[in-house]
Computed example of a mutant assay.
Amino acid sequence: MKTRATALNPHNRFQPIATDREVDDGWYRDPEDEFNPDSVATEVILENARTIISRNSSPDVPFDQSINPYRGCEHACIYCFARPTHAYWDMSPGLDFETRLIAKPNAAARLREELDRPGYRVSPIALGVNTDAYQPLERSQRITRQVLEVLSDYRHPVSIITKGALILRDLDLLSGMAAQGLCSVRVSLTTLSNDLKRSMEPRTAAPATRLKMIRQLSDAGVPTGIILGPVIPFVNDHEIEAILEAAARAGATRASWIMLRLPHELDELFQDWLRRHFPQRAEHVMNRMRDLRGGKSYDATFGRRMTGIGPYSDLIRQRFTKKARQLGLNLHEAELLRVDRFRRPGGEQMALW
């Protein structure tokens, strides 16, 4: 499937009935067959969001509030832990996740309403955590830009995780907020190989472009770090030191890492990708994944799901920590963003109107 990570659409685990539209025995493929296209156009569904701030109490993440302007992600990263969430919307975590996207055009309006509530308590908002806020769809929808404008008006702290070069469009807002201690960015940097990037993250910015993003963000005064995630055994784990060195040269000041996670349908999708692109080492990779997860493909236990357990996990941690310290990269999970600058643009009494 051209420019897509997978052509599979695994059954939605919330649907009691599964239907196969056809069985392909491999003997014949009609190029005009609508069920076997070479590529699939992106479909955008508009959703009138009732709320926009999501809250969590997970000990594994350094934030308790987040905003996701979109559901699904056109970046099409095969390893994305968010794929299984698409099943909640009666769509498949496979090709549907990459091609059937949901946008929230009223996100900024909902955000103003929530920030104006008298009982709202300020804590940093993570923007674009479940799916990338700067995926290609943002170029036309501009929802992330609108959300940032609201956060800037309210002087509300925000952290952003992205692998999309479109973030540089909003450098005016980000640099202004960063000057007040209200903004930080993490660039997801998974590989320095263009070939691996093309198969694993087909619609993302090239590795060299992401390094330029780090440089331009840093030069604009925006605290910028990287997330090396996921680390995939025998696929990109040999690049750890090189990635950290490249990020540090580009101006990154912080770094963290995450081990590959394979919840729900992602297990099937990733293994199919692995057999297609790395057939000779596929079983080797999965054996190591099971070693990391107590004999299973995945373990969702807090404290384990992000790193796994055992000697291999310890080795990755030691390699990462040693190199990051040599380069002067801070290993703390989050920037200390200011919460004392928060204000409501119309005054504290606006919530009464």
Rank of each mutant, 00 (worst) to 15 (best):
R4N: 02
A5N: 11
A5H: 10
A5T: 11
P10F: 13
P10A: 04
H11W: 15
F14P: 05
P16N: 03
I17G: 00
T19S: 09
T19R: 15
D25A: 11
W27D: 10
R29I: 12
D33H: 05
P37Q: 02
D38N: 13
S39T: 06
E47R: 13
R50D: 09
T51P: 00
S54G: 04
N56W: 04
N56M: 10
S58L: 08
E74M: 10
E74L: 04
H75R: 05
A76G: 05
A76F: 08
Y79W: 13
T85C: 12
A87M: 09
Y88I: 14
W89L: 13
D90S: 13
M91D: 14
S92E: 13
R110V: 12
R110D: 06
R112A: 06
P124D: 07
I125M: 04
N130P: 00
D132P: 14
Y134W: 12
P136R: 07
E138I: 02
Q146V: 01
S152P: 00
Y154S: 01
R155N: 09
V158W: 04
G164Q: 13
A165Q: 09
A165L: 11
L168Y: 14
D170Q: 04
A178F: 03
A179Y: 03
T190E: 05
L196N: 00
K197L: 11
S199V: 14
T204C: 15
P207M: 11
A208E: 15
L211V: 13
L217I: 08
S218P: 06
S218R: 11
D219Q: 15
G221Y: 10
G221W: 08
I226Y: 03
I226R: 06
I227T: 10
L228D: 05
I232R: 06
P233D: 05
F234R: 12
F234W: 10
V235Y: 02
E239L: 03
E241Y: 09
A242P: 00
L244S: 02
E245S: 07
E245G: 02
A246D: 01
A248D: 08
A252I: 06
S256D: 01
M259Q: 09
L262F: 04
L262S: 05
L266Y: 10
E268A: 12
Q271L: 15
F278A: 09
F278T: 06
Q280P: 01
Q280M: 15
R281G: 11
E283L: 09
E283K: 10
H284T: 14
N287L: 15
M289V: 15
G295I: 14
G295H: 07
K296P: 00
K296F: 04
T307C: 03
G308I: 12
G308D: 03
I309H: 03
P311N: 06
Y312S: 01
I316S: 07
Q318W: 01
F320T: 03
K322T: 05
L329R: 09
L329S: 07
A334W: 01
A334N: 02
V339K: 11
V339F: 03
R341L: 15
F342L: 10
Q349S: 12
Q349G: 01
M350S: 08
M350A: 08
A351C: 12
L352F: 13
